[in-house]
Design a protein around this nucleic acid. Structure first.
Lengths: 106, 106
DNA sequence: TATAAATACAACCATTTGGTTGTGCAAGTT
DNA sequence: AACTTGCACAACCAAATGGTTGTATTTATA
């Protein structure tokens, strides 16, 4: 129950996924992210804090506005993990196959 | 704050990811999953409950043992979502490019 | 200068999460 | 029959999560 701050945590929440999708279209300020989100600005701010701590977004002050940009490269870790699991899954009968091949030879 | 049960939630916890990785090598019973996990059987049982509710594993009773099998196809949703975000990211300047191309023609 | 806009910060709250211990029970084993 | 193994269920707990409201601060605008 340690406060985990990683990409998996970042995309675990539907609102945070929505934010990432919005930002995938280009940088936005907080007000634009709040639009049609269904929750308050303060709620969004908390999600942005999490996303920032996870390295999923970068924030840039510009006058009185704060611009948010997505760091989609962070998502590579997730895809890599999925692919690794799939690879293991594909190999799960290899040991057995090898064993059977071995017994045949005997 | 509704109790969300989806793939994103399933992979959000490091222990659950460890379970999925273990099961990627083939089906296991609960005792085998508990081995070297660092937490109690009951703790693992709770994670398995979550994974089951997310559709990430299937459970099969076999005598007094319960066999767990991973359902890795569920991870497709995550990869699809990531790819969609990346696609948007790739297209984020297209509008601007089109606009510029348009002005050139004039 | 007064006002509006964009945001930050703090306190508060209910629910979820992720773990524990303790108990009980069914299925194999000796 | 007695014991061991594998597991389910319940109660309990601290901390994290995901939201709210309320207040203050800075920046731009009329």
């Amino acid at each position: 129950m340690i406060e985990r701050r990683d990409v998996y945590q970042a995309i675990a929440d539907p609102i945070r996924r929505m934010i990432i999708q919005k930002l995938s279209g280009g940088a936005l300020n907080i007000g634009q992210i709040v639009e049609d989100s269904g929750i308050t600005r303060q709620g969004i701010a908390k999600h942005l804090k999490v996303l920032n701590e996870c390295g999923m977004i970068t924030l840039t002050q510009k006058g009185r506005e704060q611009f948010c940009e997505a760091r989609l490269d962070q998502l590579d870790e997730v895809v890599d993990w999925v692919n690794q699991s799939r690879k293991l899954w594909g190999q799960r009968f290899e040991k057995l196959d090898k064993f059977l091949a071995g017994t045949k030879k005997l």
